[in-house]
Design a protein around this nucleic acid. Structure first.
Lengths: 143, 143
DNA sequence: CTCCCAGATCGTAATTATTCCGATGTAATT
DNA sequence: AATTACATCGGAATAATTACGATCTGGGAG
């Protein structure tokens, strides 16, 4: 998904493209990782110093509602956002010590199928599957 | 896991049993569900009015470190705690509208096995698998 | 049983993350 | 150019969590 494709999709949905929204999108698309709201604020401030937290949060939640952005809630209460690349749905290996993460290609589709069958009354919209532990570096450090 | 079993396990690990810790344990063991820190504070205050937030959080994190308690981080940044019944590991179906949940018996073990094989350098300690969507009641209510 | 002290708790302040809100700005439409 | 509907700003309000000095106490040593 490129920036232009995303922009025309937004326009098609009747969403105004403001400079702030554009900058936030660029940050999200630029690097393949996920961000805290604060990181996004800092990055956007580089090219748009006047942006406020309010705008960042509102924009992220707007994008989330539109399905452009995913919200991740990790152990410890860390909330992160990432661009939703539908073509490459994935989960994470999260280190509890340093907070680093790796993407995983594996997805528990069998389980999901079973759950859908067993709970037809529940309208599933998404799922999370995160693996916690200690990364190669942190597992060697005691405490 | 009964209260007495848990207490002797704690003693065995050299952990002091204070009245506050005892009350928190009772709350966690009493009903089969999960709690916010605030709910635990409120419940413990009924029998121990002087307890502070600090104590609740420190105790929960202590129990978590000892493996007695699990911390769950749901969409929206809600943090919840529940007693870790190792014999009955489970995941959740979480409604994004009303916040209600159901326990699931299904667990993506195949996926976990594959991930362990593919990432032998990562020391896995736990995982989360939550399904989000709308429950029977909320899916019928528009907005 | 009593004493003692490392560890636990209290009370409250500090910190952090998130949301709210009134005033102002901006883009599209008539 | 005026109107209208959103967006944004700036900062205050709220909520959740953590920190910290003063005080207290569970449970082992004697």
């Amino acid at each position: 998904m490129t920036l232009n494709e995303t922009l025309s999709r937004l326009k098609g949905q009747g969403v105004k493209i403001t400079p702030q929204r554009l900058e936030i999108l660029k940050v999200l698309l630029d690097e393949e990782r996920y961000y805290s709201a604060e990181e996004i604020l800092k990055k956007v401030q580089e090219s748009y110093p006047a942006i406020s937290y309010d705008t960042v949060y509102r924009t992220l939640y707007l994008f989330k509602k539109l399905g452009l952005v995913l919200e991740l809630n990790f152990q410890g209460g860390y909330r992160r956002f990432e661009f939703n690349r539908q073509d490459r749905h994935h989960h994470h290996l999260v280190c509890l010590k340093c907070g680093c993460s790796q993407k995983l290609s594996c997805c528990p589709t069998d389980c999901l199928t079973r759950i859908k069958e067993e709970h037809p009354e529940f309208a599933i919209t998404s799922h999370s599957f995160e693996i916690y532990g200690y990364c190669e570096v942190c597992r060697k450090v005691k405490s």
